[in-house]
Design a protein around this nucleic acid. Structure first.
Length: 923
RNA sequence: GGGAGUGUAGCUCAGUUGGUUAGAGCAUCGUCUCGACAAGGCGAGGGUCGACGGUUCGAAUCCGUCCACUCCCACCA
């Protein structure tokens, strides 16, 4: 075998798997299905994806190997706003505006773009090794899914669960569309708060220059849309003014002073301007007091015709400047203060969001939410880890009607038509609408211009991908699906809506379990993001990237070009030599290792390096196995030595641990169990212990065959156990295992996943190996501490041993000789003279290395002292427990006995060591 | 303001229902090219488990208070 070079083996295997259709559900096993959270069709793979899909792939491969009829459903999302924005930007670069093209031409461009770049993420998923069923790949805007969307919308409408209404929504003035609460991100920003004087009116209605209320606002331009000033009903300062009027500056309007409990007396002056059309709270106040709702904005956040002419057409911020200037001229600005406040920005556009009054479609959510809450409460759906269900409950128990219309072009167009009188008809098509409502053919109907929120179609994902509304075989077989794997940020957007829609239309939960994984951050715990320039492309870890290319990638297309320099500096510091090509398997193994139940997982390149080393270790171990088994007989009568029986036994523990870890989604523990078995047991001990056996000339052929067989067999089983995590290299090595061991299967992917075999445990062999390890470790410790080269043979003597010790020494002398390189191994009988020696204890037995010429007296004294002190502190601790009557009384008998045994054993040990120490000291 | 989480070795993290000498990887120090592997072998050092109190025979683990950090939701104009 060659050196371990992941890039040599990974690509070709994936192609073979896919060509041979190994990813398709097969067999008669229990169905097991996971739907991929559909990535944006025009997107690229980021670390979060790579992490998530690696986790899912291991689960899928695990179930497939277990014999389940396993489906990992592939699909992509049309990602309405994001994709339309992307294409709009592309066109802008060519100097084209969407409005120049018109709806249809623009959509053609988007489909073109999808055709061009839509395959990218699929290719990246293949590089990751994701065993998705490509053959049934779906797209949220394909024909079938569009049919499902239409069906759902119409049925909801017919059930009275969809309605149209004029409300305040979050409005993105750049994208010119409504967006959902969830797509608004608030961050603290520094701004100002203006304290403005609002003059009271005099009896004749004119402004009273002497008497005014001071109101505080962060948005002075909205003054132009004020309908009232509110005070707290119990506020003694203002009680007498309720009912009087304000002469609203800059306008000719007079507005009332009202009393409402919404007002916080402690804040500012206790007077609040009320602008119902431009603030969610004010909107509610306005409703309660039947105030006029004065919309002062156009859809691009310029001021409209309901304000005085000089403000019309100004952008909201230009208007703010002018409003303040005029108020100052009038002497109505009391003061301006710096102010920290949460500013809502559009997730996609980054622009400040306006509450904006517009006509929108809504889903009446409560009737859908109630059963969805129950499904989690009664355990039909389980969240893992369980506390993540709090996020779900918090959202669902406070849920607001869902605004599902978007003023976009790219998406599912709302199936509603209007006649000239404004009457609305909802149906599956214009033809259906006409026939259903008996409309004459010459009545002109125009379809609603809006499209649906992207999450509307995603909400149907678990069943629409399987063919719903048709009752297909796939739907019957795989729904409800078994597991949904996603990040906690997506619980509200998606998980909750899938549960609601699936219960409504399938009368089934969409999935039985939801595994919520942590968020991948950089090594400093910072969220990876384009704007911070700290993101990593998973494929750059697989394939490697030069420092210059990495810098280029991170600083390209920044929203804030100013950041480029800082990002470049940080990147050059963090990756002075770029990133090496580590390969997919090591990257994947890293993901499993860091996937504990923590809410954030830091991605640390050092760990990738460590797990690359692990893969290399396994590779080289396989190399060793093949070297020692090729052209050698492995069939015929076999005899298993103690080391064979031990490693077989140890493997069962590992298999049990990995199975348990997979059932509980503890990928880190699965990875750890495999890592430790391969490295610490198989490589460090088993391979070493087989060497003397395989090289010996005086050992029976049966035993040698047994060792060769076990080498191959344990390697083969280990490969199967590790396959869900490191699929490529396990396949590559597995293919080289002789068919007499591995069977005639075509691929490791479809072989059985190992389970612990209760009959294969051999505790006796395990105990013997523990003994051998202790002997070897004892001499190694003396060698290491005394600085005795491994090349120099040392005499090793055993004193005070039991019969069992002697039996073991006789049996394992060749093994020990190989591992220890002693000058001799000698058993001392009681009464034999004991030379002054460096000493290690193995149970009661003393392992002695005579000091003559080898060992420094002071060094050995120091070594013994250290050991004696260590044992003494331990014995003291145990003794204090035993001497405590309440411990002896109350602790379980076996715990007490354990402490007593410990004191006794340690007592003997200390006595022996002390004796040795005294002898050496007296030299 | 409401909710959740985290704090264990220099760094990143395990630690399963309270009973281990508190572990691992990386890093550090020493040493070794011995028949798979220097992307390696062997040996070693390193922690009053955030702080304080409580429950208990016994606390990293359970409870309370506090400190520090993180995230989510709702936001005071």
């Amino acid at each position: 075998m060659n050196k371990y070079q992941p890039q040599d083996i990974e690509q070709s295997w994936y192609q073979r798997w896919e060509t041979n259709d190994y990813f398709a559900p097969q067999g008669d096993g229990k169905p097991f299905a996971i739907m991929i959270p559909p990535p944006n069709v025009t997107g690229t793979l980021h670390m979060g994806h790579a992490f998530q899909h690696s986790l899912v792939d291991s689960i899928i491969r695990y179930h497939r190997m277990k014999g389940d009829k396993t489906l990992w459903q592939m699909g992509t999302d049309h990602a309405g706003i994001a994709t339309q924005l992307l294409v709009t930007e592309q066109l802008a670069a060519q100097g084209i505006r969407p409005s120049d093209l018109g709806r249809e031409k623009f959509l053609e461009k988007v489909w073109e773009w999808k055709a061009e770049s839509g395959g990218k993420i699929s290719q990246q998923l293949r590089r990751l090794g994701a065993s998705l069923n490509w053959k049934t790949e779906r797209f949220t805007l394909d024909e079938g899914l569009s049919k499902a969307v239409l069906e759902v919308f119409v049925r909801l409408y017919e059930d009275g669960l969809i309605y149209r209404g004029k409300r305040l929504v979050n409005w993105d003035p750049v994208l010119k569309t409504s967006i959902s609460d969830l797509e608004v991100e608030s961050a603290e920003e520094l701004g100002h708060i203006w304290h403005l004087r609002y003059p009271l009116t005099e009896a004749d209605g004119a402004a009273d220059p002497e008497h005014y209320l001071v109101i505080a606002t962060t948005r002075p331009e909205t003054l132009l849309g004020d309908s009232a000033v509110a005070v707290h009903p119990d506020d003694e300062r203002y009680k007498h003014l309720v009912g009087r009027e304000i002469a609203l500056p800059l306008t000719q309007r007079r507005i009332p002073i009202i009393a409402d409990f919404y007002v916080d007396r402690e804040f500012g002056t206790g007077c609040v301007k009320i602008t119902p059309a431009h603030d969610f709270n004010d909107y509610d106040v306005g409703k309660r007091h039947d105030l006029p709702i004065i919309n002062i904005l156009n859809d691009d956040a310029t001021l409209n015709t309901s304000v005085p002419e000089r403000f019309q057409g100004l952008d909201r911020y230009a208007a703010r400047t002018l409003v303040i200037a005029e108020l100052e001229a009038l002497g109505l600005v009391e003061k301006i203060e710096d102010h920290k406040m949460a500013v809502p920005r559009g997730e996609k556009s980054g622009v400040v969001i306006e509450p904006y009054l517009s006509d929108q479609w809504y889903v009446r959510i409560q009737p859908l939410a109630d059963p969805a809450i129950q499904a989690v409460e009664n355990g039909a759906i389980k969240f893992i880890p369980q506390n993540t269900e709090n996020t779900y409950y918090a959202w669902m128990r406070n849920i607001q009607d869902w605004c599902v219309s978007r003023q976009q072009w790219w998406g599912h167009r709302i199936p509603a038509w209007y006649d000239p009188a404004g009457q609305v008809y909802v149906g599956r098509s214009e033809a259906e609408v006409r026939s259903h409502h008996g409309l004459s053919a010459d009545l002109p109907l125009t379809q609603d211009e809006d499209v649906l929120d992207t999450w509307f179609s995603s909400a149907l994902w678990t069943f629409s991908t399987l063919g719903w509304p048709d009752n297909t075989d796939d739907l019957k077989t795989f729904h409800s699906t078994d597991l949904m794997v996603t990040g906690h940020d997506i619980i509200t957007f998606w998980v909750s809506r899938m549960i609601m829609m699936s219960l409504k239309f399938m009368d089934q939960v969409p999935f039985h379990q939801v595994y919520i994984h942590g968020l991948v951050t950089d090594a400093d715990g910072q969220k990876m993001s384009k704007s911070k320039g700290n993101g990593l492309d998973p494929l750059d870890i697989v394939d490697g990237i030069s420092l210059d290319d990495l810098v280029k990638k991170r600083t390209a297309n920044l929203l804030q070009p100013k950041m480029a320099q800082r990002i470049e500096k940080a990147t050059r510091k963090e990756f002075p030599e770029g990133i090496k090509a580590y390969g997919t398997d090591p990257l994947r193994f890293t993901f499993y290792s860091i996937a504990s139940s923590a809410r954030t997982v830091r991605f640390d390149m050092n760990r990738v390096e460590g797990y690359r080393n692990f893969c290399n270790k396994l590779w080289n171990a396989a190399n060793f196995v093949f070297m020692n088994t090729q052209d050698q007989s492995i069939t015929g009568t076999l005899a298993l030595s103690v080391i064979d029986r031990w490693i077989i036994s140890a493997f069962q523990d590992t298999a049990a641990a990995v199975n348990l870890a997979m059932e509980t989604y503890r990928f880190d523990l699965a990875a750890k169990a495999i890592y430790e078995f391969v490295w610490d047991e198989f490589c460090d001990w088993y391979l070493e212990l087989t060497k003397p056996l395989l090289m010996a000339t005086d050992v029976s052929p049966e035993l040698q065959r047994g060792a060769r067989h076990t080498l191959l067999s344990i390697l083969e089983q280990t490969l199967r156990l590790a396959h869900p995590f490191i699929p490529f290299m396990t396949e590559e090595i597995w293919q080289q295992i002789p068919a007499s061991i591995r069977g005639s299967g075509e691929t490791i992917m479809l072989e059985a996943f190992p389970e612990a075999n209760a009959n294969a445990y051999d505790r006796e062999a395990e105990a013997d190996i523990v003994w051998i390890k202790a002997i070897v470790a004892g001499t190694r410790n003396i060698r290491g501490e005394m600085d005795i080269s491994y090349a120099r043979p040392i005499p090793v003597l055993f004193a005070n041993g039991s019969e069992q010790d002697q039996r073991r020494l006789d049996a394992y002398r060749p093994l020990l000789t190989f591992l220890i390189r002693p000058e001799r191994l000698a058993w001392l009988n009681p009464g034999d003279p004991i030379p002054v020696s460096a000493t290690q204890l193995v149970g009661e037995m003393q392992l002695l290395v005579p000091m003559s010429g080898l060992i420094d007296k002071d060094a050995e004294l120091a070594r013994l002292d250290k050991e004696i002190v260590r044992k003494k502190t331990e014995v003291e601790r145990a003794e204090s427990k035993i001497n405590n009557p309440s411990f002896v009384d109350r602790a379980p008998v076996e715990v007490v006995q354990k402490e007593k045994d410990k004191v006794q054993d340690l007592g003997h040990a200390i006595a022996q060591l002390q004796e040795q120490r005294d002898r050496i000291a007296s030299l």
